[in-house]
Amino acid sequence: MSSIAARLIPVLAAMTLLAACTSTAVMETTNEVAPLEGDAVILLVEPDVELSFLKAAGVSEVRADWTETGKANVLAEIETLLATRGHKLVEHEIDPENEREVQIVKLHEIVGATILSHRFMGQPLPSKRGKFDWSLGPGVRDMAEAQGADYALFLHARGEYASSGRQAVAIGLAVLGAGGVSTGGQGAYASLVDMRTGDIIWFNVAFTGPGTDMREQDGAEHLVSAILKDIPL
């Protein structure tokens, strides 16, 4: 499902792309975190991935096949990365009949958007100075119970890939002296929620430049290692 903040990603990606490098911004909770006991069970909550075709006029068109591939690649890479650290990833589909779960997931969308707009995009909240204590609250325990989950991982990823037409326009306009035309890119944000307290214990935003492509296995690996940078697992 699409979220408010996820729709910001292509725009953010476009703006950081001119540097053609990968940038990340890792944030961690200032709350006390109970130490992890043994191998973790991590609930991967319905990842929200959407890949689009960025056409000449700046209109982007979602591609169902690219989305399927990108999603599958990213999930596989996440699973691999976490498995090498001895953790178990459980893919979790939201049960629309479970009102609590639905509310928690919607709450997370808002919390994610809030973190992006006040911590990443630089309009800091004086009331949060020195604190990163956003939480979904202890209501998460309902969600955790069925699978015995210790953590939940939320992921939103967007990719826009330029048509060859778009690249021609970018070159054309550059020649004529008008720069700054987006040629696509990928962006994602992820959060790790402690399912005992609901606290967001880790949050990261990552953007990659053109040329690293989650539709390809190695591109997905690059993106995932950027997204999951410094994840405390």
Partner: peptide, 12 residues
């Protein structure tokens, strides 16, 4: 079918 522009529109 998946690779068409129509499929992308449906997905959205």
């Amino acid at each position: 079918s998946e690779e068409t522009d129509e499929a992308g529109l449906w997905l959205r």
